[in-house]
């Protein structure tokens, strides 16, 4: 038994190391001197400790703080709204007394098979909804994903109708049933959706790049991406015309690593937070047997 546990620990440690070591290398790389990284590659401990990469990013501190705020807002509001609307839709579709549920489900499903394509999508959002450069453009297009709706729908199907009926007999109204009885039961499913949605919002740069043209409204990922582009842009310009800007000696490789660390930020906390609900979901299943 002890041997078994020891092997178990060893295997777990091994996989944990595979996950953690790249992260440590990223951290130490971002704290290293750029030339050393280019010369000898990445290492577990920083070579020639240097804060140059972070200093280079500090130039953009105002922009970074602003975009951090926007990204947090988008993630929190976006995830909250997504959860609310997705669970509401999924719940309605799971109710057997909703007679159009199959037709509506098909309507939602249909959009996963055929889409209008990027141009009509872009035109609807910019020319009809007038959302270009608005905060909501970062949230609205991703609010309702068919996959998530069906996830909720199928999860809630397992809840017996009699539960809803008895609540109604006790005098509960529809929204009360949804809010007080169905939602608490759907926690594991909602935690999954919340995790994916929050990560999606946090890492999203595409919506910013398509719909936001005012730099003060960029999300974090897009700001960082732009800083990187800036460096390349200067190089290109310099090559083109002999223009030099004094930026040639700025670190690039280590800045990338420092950026990756900055963007990781609070996201690492999402999973431990949501994990509680995953475990809960598993135990619910086991009791049901």
């Amino acid at each position: 038994m002890k041997v078994f546990i020891a092997i178990g620990y060893f295997v777990l440690l091994f996989f944990a190391a595979i996950c953690v070591i790249p992260f440590i290398m990223m951290l130490s790389g971002s704290l290293s001197n750029e030339q050393e990284v280019l010369k000898y590659g990445y290492s577990i401990l920083p070579r020639q400790f240097s804060l140059d990469a972070y200093k280079a990013l500090l130039v953009y501190s105002n922009q970074l703080i602003r975009s951090y705020t926007i990204t947090i807002e988008v993630t929190v509001i976006g995830t909250g709204l997504t959860l609310f609307l997705t669970s509401l839709t999924g719940y309605v579709l799971s109710r057997s007394d909703f007679i159009y549920r199959d037709k509506v489900s098909f309507f939602i499903y249909f959009t996963t098979l055929f889409s209008g394509g990027i141009v009509p999508w872009y035109m609807v959002i910019t020319q009809y909804l007038h959302l270009k450069n608005s905060f909501w453009v970062l949230i609205v297009p991703t609010l309702l994903a068919p996959f998530n709706i069906f996830l909720v729908k199928n999860f809630l199907k397992a809840i017996p109708d009699s539960l809803v009926e008895s609540a109604r007999i006790d005098g509960a109204k529809e929204f009360y049933i949804y809010w007080k009885i169905i939602l608490p039961l759907a926690k594991p499913c909602l935690a999954t959706i919340a995790l994916f949605t929050a990560l999606g919002h946090w890492n999203n740069w595409y919506l910013s790049s398509v719909f936001i043209t005012q730099p003060e409204k960029y999300t974090l990922q897009y700001v960082l991406y732009n800083i990187m582009q800036n460096a390349q842009y200067f190089e290109q310009q310099a090559r083109q015309s002999g223009i030099t800007t004094g930026t040639q000696s700025l670190p690039k490789e280590t800045v990338k690593l420092a950026m990756a660390l900055i963007t990781t930020g609070p996201v690492v906390l999402f999973y431990p937070f949501a994990q509680k609900y995953f475990v809960e979901g598993l135990t619910i299943g086991s009791v049901k047997g």
Partner: peptide
């Protein structure tokens, strides 16, 4: 954005 410039 220069990453996706041709599409955009």
């Amino acid at each position: 954005p220069s990453a996706d410039v041709m599409n955009q």
